[in-house]
Design a protein around this nucleic acid. Structure first.
Length: 302
RNA sequence: GCCGCGGUAGCUCAGUGGUAGAGCGCUUCUCUGAAAAAGAAGAGGUCGUCAGUUCAAUUCUGACUCGCGGCA
C-alpha cells in the first residue's frame, strides 16, 4: 500500500464549518500554486441559487477557475453519485493540465465520495417505490429489511426511515444484499481544516446572513419560485431557502425567518464538525500562513 | 391601593393529591444515489417563598413575594 501511494496524484482539500472562510483560502492557495477549485457543496451545484448558498462571485474568483458550480437545475435532484462522477472528471482534467485540484466545500459526504472513493451501490433511486415504502411504519420497514438482508439490518440505524427505505430499495432492485462499503482513495490528499472558535463563528454566521439579506436573498428565492421551483422543493434545500420560502408564503414573520436561519446554520456547523472531528488526517489551521506552509511541504514531498 | 391572571428544565409552556413532562436549546453519537438531508442517545427541575389541611402536597387553603393586565 505504501509503495503505490507515491504514484497517486496529489490533491488538496479545504474543509471547515460554514462561514469559516473556505472559499477565500481556496482562491489564495490556488493563485500561489497554480490550482483550480473544485467545489464540494450540495447546494452550490444548482444554478440560480447564488446568494442563499453563498456562491463565490466572478470577482472573488480572481481568475481562478471554479468547477462544480451551476451544474444542475434546482428543479431536479442532484445526488452524491452525480457529484462523484462529475468531480472525478474535473479532477482528472485539472491533473492532466499539470495543475493542482483544490477541493473546497462543506459537504462532508461529497468530499468523502470524491476523495475516499467510496463505492455506492449502482441502484438509482426509485421514487415510486420510495413513496410506497414511506407509507409503512418504521418497525415494518426494519422487519422487511431484516428478512431481505440480515447483514445490513445488523448495523443500520433501525429508526432511520430514509436509510431503511434506501436499503430495501437496493436489495429489491439489485436482487442482492447491500454491499459493504468500500473505500479506495485514488489520490494522495492533503486535508486543511479551518479552525475557528464557536463565538467567532456565530458572529460570522450572523454577519453573513445580514449581508445576504442586503444582497437580495429574498428576491432570489422569489425568483426561483417564479421560475417554477416549488415551495416544497425550496424547503428541501434547507436553511435560507426553507425559511425564506416559509416567510414568502406568510407562514412565519420576518423575525422568525431570521432567527430560524441563524439557528439552523449553527446546527449545521456543529454537524459538519461532528463529521470531521474524528478524521485524524485533517490538519486544523488558523492562519493562511500555516496553510501555505503545509501545502508547500506537501507538494515538495515525494 | 383594589381586582384578575401567572411564577414548573437554559427558553416557551403542558400536567397531576402519591416528589414531574413536551418542544426548542445544550452534550454526545450515527451516516452505503435526498447529506445544508435523515436519524439516535444523554444531561438538566428541592414545580416562587413560608406556613396550614392531609398518611402524603408541585397539585388544595392562606400569607408573603415577583411579573403582567385592568380599575382607581
Amino acid at each position: 500500500m505504501g509503495s503505490t501511494r507515491k504514484n497517486k496524484p496529489k490533491i488538496i482539500v479545504i474543509l471547515g464549518p460554514t462561514a469559516s472562510g473556505k472559499s477565500d483560502l481556496a482562491v489564495k492557495l490556488s493563485l500561489r500554486l497554480g490550482g483550480e477549485v473544485v467545489s464540494a457543496d450540495s447546494r452550490q451545484v444548482y444554478g440560480g441559487m447564488d446568494i442563499g448558498s453563498g456562491k463565490i462571485t466572478q470577482e472573488e474568483m480572481k481568475g481562478v477557475p471554479h468547477h462544480l458550480l451551476d451544474v444542475a437545475n434546482p428543479k431536479r435532484k442532484f445526488t452524491v453519485v452525480r457529484y462523484k462522477k462529475l468531480s472525478e472528471e474535473k479532477v482528472k482534467k485539472i491533473l492532466k493540465k499539470g495543475k493542482i485540484p483544490v477541493v473546497c466545500g462543506g459537504t462532508a459526504f461529497y468530499i468523502e465520495a470524491l476523495i475516499d472513493g467510496i463505492t455506492i451501490p449502482e441502484v438509482p433511486p426509485d421514487w415510486k417505490m420510495r413513496k410506497r415504502l414511506e407509507k409503512e411504519t418504521t418497525e415494518n420497514l426494519y422487519a422487511k429489511l431484516k428478512k431481505l438482508d440480515p447483514e445490513r439490518a445488523k448495523n443500520i440505524d433501525k429508526k432511520n426511515r430514509r436509510r431503511l427505505v434506501r436499503a430495501i430499495e437496493i436489495v429489491e432492485k439489485s436482487k442482492e444484499p447491500v454491499p459493504n462499503i468500500k473505500k479506495d482513495s485514488p489520490y494522495q490528499p492533503l486535508f486543511l481544516g479551518i479552525k475557528i472558535d464557536r463565538e467567532r463563528l456565530d458572529n460570522k454566521i450572523e454577519k453573513r446572513l445580514k449581508k445576504r439579506l442586503n444582497q437580495g436573498m429574498i428576491e432570489e428565492v422569489k425568483g426561483l419560485r417564479e421560475s417554477g421551483v416549488s415551495w416544497k422543493r425550496l424547503e428541501e434545500f434547507g436553511l435560507e431557502y426553507k425559511w425564506v420560502a416559509q416567510y414568502l408564503q406568510n407562514k412565519i414573520d420576518y423575525n422568525d425567518m431570521y432567527e430560524n436561519i441563524i439557528k439552523d446554520t449553527r446546527r449545521l456547523s456543529k454537524n459538519q464538525m461532528q463529521w470531521w472531528k474524528k478524521d485524524r488526517r485533517i490538519n486544523w489551521i488558523e492562519t493562511c500562513k500555516e496553510a501555505e506552509k503545509l501545502t508547500q511541504n506537501f507538494l515538495n514531498s515525494p
